[in-house]
C-alpha cells in the first residue's frame, strides 16, 4: 500500500502569539508537529504494518523540516520537502495546488493529513488537494478499516448529532481527527536516526509550476489586518458565602449578562 501523509510543523498551542502590527505577528519560537498530522502519520503506519508498502511524509515548508523528521522517527520510510522562495505568502489553495502537482503522478492508494493545522486552523488543504487530484475525500475521520483487496475503506466520520459510517473507494484522501489513533512516541534511537535521514527536496520548477501560480499574487484571500482577541472585562468574583453566592450568580446571569 502506497501512502502519503501531508505534515506541517506549527507553533505549539502554548507558544505566545501576538500582533506586532497590522500585517505582522510575533510568534514565539516553540514549534511542534501538528497534533492532527501525527495522528495521520499513525494511520499510515498502521496500514503499512498490516498490508506492507511504504509511507512517505510530505511537507510544503521553506524553513522547517522537523515534521518530516518526526514522521521518520515514528516509522515513515521517506520524507519529501517542497521548498521554494516563491511559495512564501501562498494561500491554502496555492499550497494545495503545489502539493497536488507533486502527488499527481504518484501511485498512491491513500493520502492522510490532519483535520486542520494548529496555526491558521483553516482545514482547507486536505479537501482542496483531493479536489485537484480528482479523488474522494472525507474530513475529520475517527474510524478507519481498509479492505486492500476490494480497494475500499470503511470510514467513521463525526457529525453534529452522531457518527456516520461511509464506504469509500481508494485512492482517497482522509483528514484525521483525535480519536482515530493515539500517535506512537518514537524511540530515542529512531529520533537520532531521523536527524540524519535523507530529505528529498523539490522545487517549483521540477513540479512544472511557475512562480506566478503560487505566492501572494496568486492568492484568492488576503489577510488585511491582524487584531488582538477581543478583551474580556475582568472577572467578577462572587465573594458571598454559600448559598448566597449561587443566588447572586443567577441574578447576574439574568439581569446583567441577560443570558438566561
Amino acid at each position: 500500500m502506497e501512502i502519503y501523509v501531508l505534515v506541517k510543523q506549527v507553533p505549539d498551542p502554548e507558544a505566545i502569539v501576538k500582533v506586532k502590527s497590522d500585517s505582522e505577528l510575533e510568534i514565539e519560537n516553540k514549534y511542534f508537529t501538528n497534533f492532527f498530522d501525527e495522528i495521520a502519520v499513525e494511520a499510515g503506519l498502521k496500514l503499512k504494518e498490516k498490508f506492507g508498502g511504504k509511507v512517505t511524509v510530505l511537507t510544503l515548508d521553506h524553513r522547517r523540516v522537523d515534521a518530516l523528521r518526526r514522521g521518520i522517527s515514528m516509522g515513515a520510510d521517506e520524507a519529501v520537502q517542497i521548498t521554494d522562495p516563491a511559495l512564501e505568502g501562498s494561500d491554502p489553495f496555492a499550497v494545495a495546488r503545489t502539493l497536488s502537482a507533486y502527488l499527481q503522478n504518484k501511485p498512491f492508494d491513500l493520502i492522510f493529513t490532519g483535520r486542520q493545522a494548529m496555526d491558521d486552523d483553516a482545514g482547507i488543504v486536505g479537501p482542496a488537494v483531493a479536489e485537484c487530484l480528482g479523488i474522494p475525500h472525507i474530513h475529520s475521520i475517527i474510524g478507519l478499516e481498509v479492505d486492500a483487496q476490494k480497494k475500499e475503506a470503511r470510514v467513521v466520520r463525526e457529525v453534529e448529532n452522531g457518527k456516520e459510517v461511509l464506504i469509500c473507494p481508494l485512492p482517497a484522501l482522509f483528514t484525521c481527527q483525535k480519536g482515530l489513533h493515539s500517535p506512537r512516541i518514537p524511540l530515542v534511537m529512531n529520533v537520532m536516526k531521523a536527524m540524519k535521514a535523507q530529505i528529498k527536496k523539490v522545487d517549483l520548477a521540477s513540479l512544472g509550476l511557475s512562480p506566478t501560480e503560487v505566492g501572494a499574487q496568486a492568492s484568492t484571500i488576503k489577510i488585511q489586518k491582524y487584531l488582538p482577541p477581543p478583551k474580556r472585562p475582568p472577572v467578577k468574583i462572587i465573594k458571598e458565602d454559600f448559598p448566597e453566592n449561587v443566588k447572586t450568580l443567577i441574578k447576574l446571569l439574568r439581569e446583567e449578562a441577560k443570558v438566561i
Partner: peptide
C-alpha cells in the same frame, strides 16, 4: 487564528 490568540480580517 492560532486557536484565537489573534484574529484576522480577511478580504
Amino acid at each position: 487564528l492560532f486557536g484565537g490568540k489573534v484574529f484576522a480580517e480577511v478580504g
